[in-house]
Design a protein around this nucleic acid. Structure first.
Length: 815
DNA sequence: GGGGGAAGGACCA
DNA sequence: TTCCTGGTCCTTCCCCC
């Protein structure tokens, strides 16, 4: 039944293979699958979840169709070439086959459920599961008879088995039990590899070697029934779930009247002893598989589950025989999609896999077919990896539908906070921050951002996550994002030596007191700049910048004190050296909150433009919004730049005597920026001290920094940003009336809401920034634009009308 | 063609 | 009424040499 069960249900009997019962699990043999599936389908049909599964299944079907099409075009010649390749590879692998290790996979039986049953014996003969109405983590074997299994929502399980008892999950308890179990593992392999709370791989080769010389006393274990009072009760309790504990060894009475058991020296006996000790210690049973490698051990541990073990002998023929009729789905790593794909090729067992290897080599990627080949030969990893470094850390939460912006942002901050705490526990910092969103239709989106330097604090994470979230919100506005899950992940961890320099350099950069002429001189003397002189006369560059620096320093240098930092946005001294406090200030400044000195949160502020837009949209389109094709990469950037250049040109139309200066400010992690894409002739570069910036090939900017999370690059162009070659796109759609900006009150020559939204954004930003500029340097008409740089960076463009480059240059110096 | 980042999935417990 | 969480790895696409 097991051999064909999984596949026949997925090869299409009129219902979704994704939704149907997955009975590829111990304790689920011989169930009435049709009846169970009918109930599952009836409970799911029409739900958003179901609809999404339907969509995903269609995608898999399309993938299969493409594969079959590809298969149809394969020639005999290709096939025989692939066959030769496979044979070569096979013989190479065969030569390297290692049967010398004894690998054990131990798996606690229905772990969470077993722990709960141990602690509440009333549950023993009832169908029960651990989890909630929305999701079960595991079920006991009694419940499995009804088709109730892990990863099934509780409400469906209840329909399958109305008497099901659902116990809430209690991780702390399982962790504690797991620690006890691991103590036992460590006696057999101190380097054992835990896969989860209830599962581990062990290499017991060394243990067996030693064990051979052990006297009986070391292999004798007392059957400990605990305290005397509890003996009677525990007698019926242990083993908790299963009565069929195979105990063939003779049981002796020890002096105290307890029973003792003597275990042998072979692998089976060692593993049996280990399971015995686990049971003694925790009253829980475990199953185990013994095999020459991890892949096989894993399959073996399932073979006699629960409370059993299976040994696959360490000889080639035994391995080959074992693998022959094994359904591919039994192998860890082959899930329902791969199973279905292979099924479409007529492959259900591992022997099929071997027979069709040449075909697989042509249809799948190299890594995939190599993996398949290993499986078909019964090969797997023979050494248990030492604690591999963690690659990422994340936290996510599912909740009832959430559409309110302030809720979304504050949740995002909460997640960042939780994640920051977790990161701190392991002293980790990562460069890539990923935001994960799942909407009410179960569609998942992830958006990532890579910084040049690793971050870890709540504020650092939130600064990025918030931007990513805002971008997503803007993308669907004026509709709200209807979320059901949000998550934040950090990956791309920095190595230990990357961690130190960060704090110092940023502090150094922001301490105005410091004569940071280093940063400017470093830049102006940058070799590549000289090698590639800009086309426009560059005489303003070397002279203007330093002089302006002096001027600024003269004006604004505080009398004394190194205990304040200068905000790069509002130029104010922030009276703190606490980076967290300072970060918050900068964050708020960037969000435009600081000016009013109110206590608005970011989320409150960010709601501003949306409200206007919603109203406008309703007015114009009656709420319906056309989704244009998504702009990508430089297209998007060009559009952004065009828009802002357009605005700038508009503002100075008819006045060509005024010189306009463009300033491009990047906060970026990218390696290369093509300046031609953004239309700028750089004549002056500025960056924070630890950023490494150079001009390559006349128009490519290379940016890298090992120490600063955001390299800021200021590019000054005396002529302002070059307009792109493309003219500004037709600005008016004739179907609707023009839109009036609620900020500047001017009618905009567009009814493209995306453009209009940008304008409003711009206006809002401009007001704030303008005020800042007024405070800092006197009144200038300032245009500002910022957008996400598509290759991972934040771009800000400023343009000043009617000001000499030096003005903007001095402004640039402050950034 | 290859390297690298981003996005999206597959898969696992 | 109600379909998780936290990981890893792989694939695909795009951009840029």
């Amino acid at each position: 039944a097991m051999a064909t069960g999984g596949t026949s249900s997925s090869s299409g009997e009129g219902f979704l293979s994704r939704m149907a019962l997955n009975d590829n699990k111990a304790g689920m043999e011989g169930l009435n699958r049709d009846k169970i599936n009918k109930i599952i389908m009836e409970s799911s049909k029409g739900s958003r979840f179901y609809e999404n599964e339907l969509k995903k299944e269609q995608q898999v079907n399309q993938r299969i169709e493409r594969m079959m099409l590809q298969k149809a075009h394969i020639t005999e010649q290709q096939l025989s070439k692939a066959q030769a390749q496979v044979e070569k590879m096979t013989s190479d692998l065969e030569r390297g086959r290692d049967l010398s290790r004894v690998i054990v996979h131990v798996d606690m039986d229905a772990f969470y459920a077993a722990v709960e049953t141990r602690d509440c014996p009333d549950l023993m003969d009832k169908p029960m599961a651990v989890g909630s109405m929305s999701m079960l983590s595991t079920s006991n074997y009694h419940a499995r008879k009804f088709g109730v299994r892990a990863a099934m929502p509780g409400f469906i399980a209840k329909k399958l088995c109305p008497n099901l008892v659902i116990v809430p999950i209690n991780f702390d308890k399982y962790r504690a039990v797991s620690a006890e179990v691991r103590e036992v593992f460590a006696d057999y392999d101190p380097h054992f590899l835990p896969m989860s709370l209830d599962e581990a791989y062990l290499d017991i080769s060394d243990h067996l070697e030693q064990r051979r010389g052990w006297p009986e006393a070391l292999r004798t274990h007392l059957e400990d029934h605990g305290g005397l009072q509890e003996t009677v009760e525990l007698e019926g309790l242990s083993p908790v779930l299963f009565e069929n504990s195979p105990s063939s060894s003779p049981c002796l009475q020890d002096a105290a009247g307890g029973e003792v058991e003597v275990f042998g020296t072979c692998a089976e006996e060692a593993v049996r002893e280990m399971r015995f000790r686990i049971e003694q210690k925790t009253s829980l049973t475990a199953s185990a598989g013994i095999a020459p490698n991890m892949m096989l051990a894993k399959v073996c541990s399932d073979k006699n589950k629960p409370n059993g073990q299976y040994r696959l002998p360490s000889n080639r023929q035994a391995v080959i025989d074992f693998i022959q009729d094994l359904p591919v789905r039994k192998i860890s790593g082959i899930g329902k999609v791969t199973e279905k794909m292979l099924g479409a090729l007529g492959i259900t067992s591992c022997s099929h896999l071997g027979q069709e290897m040449a075909l697989l080599a042509l249809l799948f990627s190299e890594t995939s077919w190599h993996h398949f080949l290993h499986i078909s030969m019964g090969l797997g990893s023979t050494h248990i990896e030492r604690d591999g470094e963690r690659k990422s850390m994340s936290t996510e939460r599912t909740f009832g539908e959430m559409g309110a912006l302030e809720e979304q942002f504050s949740l995002c901050r909460e997640l960042c906070q939780d994640l920051a705490q977790d990161l701190q526990k392991e002293a980790l910092k990562g460069k890539t921050v990923t935001l994960k969103l799942k909407n009410v239709n179960f569609e998942v989106k992830t958006r990532a951002w890579t910084l040049p330097c690793a971050v870890a604090t709540t504020e650092e994470l939130f600064a990025v996550a918030k931007d990513l979230l805002k971008t997503e919100i803007d993308n669907v506005s004026p509709q709200p994002l209807r979320l059901r899950l949000m998550g934040v992940r950090v990956s791309n961890f920095a190595s230990a030596d990357d961690k130190k320099p960060l704090q110092k350099s940023i502090v150094g950069f922001l301490h105005k007191k410091q004569t940071d002429s280093s940063s400017t001189s470093q830049i102006s003397s940058h070799k590549p700049v000289k090698e590639h002189p800009p086309k426009s006369p560059g005489q303003t560059q070397p002279s203007a910048c330093p002089s302006m620096v002096q001027q600024r320093q003269g004006q604004e240098e505080p009398e004394s004190g190194t205990d304040s930092l200068t905000c790069p946005v509002c130029f104010r001294e922030v009276n703190t050296t606490e980076l967290t406090v300072f970060n918050r200030h900068v964050d708020q400044c960037l969000s435009g909150v600081t000016m009013g000195q109110n206590n608005h949160t970011d989320t409150e502020l960010e709601r501003g433009p949306r409200v206007c837009e919603e109203e406008v949209e309703k007015e114009i389109t009656g709420g319906k919004r056309e989704e244009g094709p998504k702009e990508k990469g430089s297209e998007l950037l060009s559009r952004c730049m065009l828009d802002s250049v357009g605005l700038q040109l508009d503002s100075s139309a008819g006045d060509h005597t005024e010189s306009t200066t463009g300033l491009l400010l990047y906060e970026t992690s990218t390696a290369n920026i093509s300046l031609s894409t953004v239309g700028l002739n750089p004549v002056c570069l500025n960056t924070c001290p630890n950023g490494d910036v150079s001009i390559h090939r006349a128009n490519t900017l290379k940016v890298s920094s090992q120490s600063d999370p955001r390299v800021r690059v200021c590019l000054l162009s005396p002529g302002g940003p070059r307009p792109m070659t493309t003219p500004k796109p037709e600005s008016r759609d004739h179907r609707g009336p023009a839109l009036t900006c609620p900020v500047c009150q001017e009618t905009q020559d567009t009814n493209d809401l995306t453009l209009f939204n940008r304008h409003v954004d711009l206006c809002l930003n401009q007001e704030v920034l303008h005020d800042n500029m007024v405070k800092a340097q006197g009144p200038h008409p300032l245009m500002q634009y910022h957008a996400n740089w598509p290759h991972g960076g934040r771009l800000k463009m400023l343009a000043l009308k009617g000001q000499p480059p030096s003005t903007l240059c001095s402004y640039a110096q402050t950034l």
